[in-house]
Deep mutational scan, measured.
Amino acid sequence: MGFKLLSKLLVYLTASIMAIASPLAFSVDSSGEYPTVSEIPVGEVRLYQIADGVWSHIATQSFDGAVYPSNGLIVRDGDELLLIDTAWGAKNTAALLAEIEKQIGLPVTRAVSTHFHDDRVGGVDVLRAAGVATYASPSTRRLAEVEGNEIPTHSLEGLSSSGDAVRFGPVELFYPGAAHSTDNLIVYVPSASVLYGGCAIYELSRTSAGNVADADLAEWPTSIERIQQHYPEAQFVIPGHGLPGGLDLLKHTTNVVKAHTNRSVVE
């Protein structure tokens, strides 16, 4: 069995187990497998329904001669939608809004960016022009300005110390501490036991640490421990890039980060 097929099978099995364990909360999309990078042309966006009122959005972007996937989250909030992270750029984010209108038909009224990198804030200006209120932590807003990236308009308070959590509509926002970046936030959907790890969490097929220019490698494993301790009931975990899975993604990420750190020390 090929690795790609095995990865998709694991996603399907995880979703099936969740649907059985929580039949009222989960209505997993039966329309197909989780979209992969090879299936999404740059400039297009796919939506994948995880649970009743919960979707991931998947886009792709060219970077350094390669094409990478990027995940975000959409959560229903009454007759409105909360968006977590842009679709990595203005063109993708405009396509995301169009796809949401086509498939869901509810307005996106608020959006949260989970850290300051372009795959999370690139497209904020498109959201703002569409009347979406954009939010991020003060740290993310400051770092985005320093980096020359787009800056969300509103500040999220109460997320300055490791372990801080605040309720934001249908989700809980959690600051686990520094990891992929010093400002990275985690998003949890309690009604569906869905954990969105953003770039602080890796997919299972990833074996290298990737972009760690703004990471705190020493603190990252401790931050992941905080996530595990705060959300032990999480059933569906979405990484910032690639295929979702279960809580095993947290341990896998820790292993990859520690291996990278150990290699760096040896070198």
Rank of each mutant, 00 (worst) to 15 (best):
T182N: 12
L13Q: 12
V132H: 00
T14N: 09
W88H: 00
D164H: 09
H260K: 12
T261S: 13
F63A: 09
L250I: 07
G246H: 08
V166G: 04
R76H: 08
H115V: 00
A136L: 03
A87K: 00
T134H: 02
V45L: 04
L24Q: 13
V126I: 09
R167D: 13
G242N: 03
A25E: 14
A87S: 05
G65V: 07
T253V: 02
A234P: 08
V265G: 13
F236S: 10
V265D: 13
L82Y: 06
A15L: 12
T153D: 10
A259R: 13
K4M: 10
S160L: 12
L82V: 09
Y196T: 02
V266M: 12
L143G: 04
A234C: 01
E101A: 14
P69Y: 13
T134K: 00
T36R: 11
Q229F: 12
R141N: 07
P69M: 15
D125E: 13
G105Y: 08
L24W: 07
V121K: 02
H241E: 01
I40D: 06
Y135F: 11
M1C: 04
V257W: 03
L47M: 09
P170A: 09
L243W: 08
E172F: 03
S162C: 07
E150G: 06
R120L: 01
I100D: 01
P152T: 02
L250Q: 03
I100A: 06
S22M: 12
E225D: 14
G105P: 06
P244G: 04
T254I: 13
N184M: 01
Q61L: 06
A66C: 06
N255W: 10
V124A: 08
R142F: 12
R226L: 09
A21S: 13
Q49R: 14
I58M: 08
Y135Q: 00
Y175T: 01
A215D: 07
Y231V: 04
G2W: 09
K102S: 13
D216F: 05
G246Q: 08
S7F: 10
V28F: 06
P221K: 08
T182I: 11
Q49P: 14
T109F: 08
S161T: 14
V257E: 03
M1H: 05
S205Q: 07
F63N: 08
L247S: 14
S193E: 14
V45E: 04
T140R: 03
R120I: 00
G89P: 03
A178I: 07
V108F: 03
P23Y: 10
I100P: 00
P239A: 03
K4E: 09
S139H: 13
I84H: 00
V124H: 06
G131T: 06
V45F: 04
S208K: 10
P176H: 04
V124R: 01
G89Q: 00
N211T: 09
S16P: 13
L97T: 02
G198V: 06
D85E: 02
Y68R: 03
Y231W: 05
I74N: 05
T60M: 10
V75N: 02
Y202T: 07
H117S: 00
V112S: 02
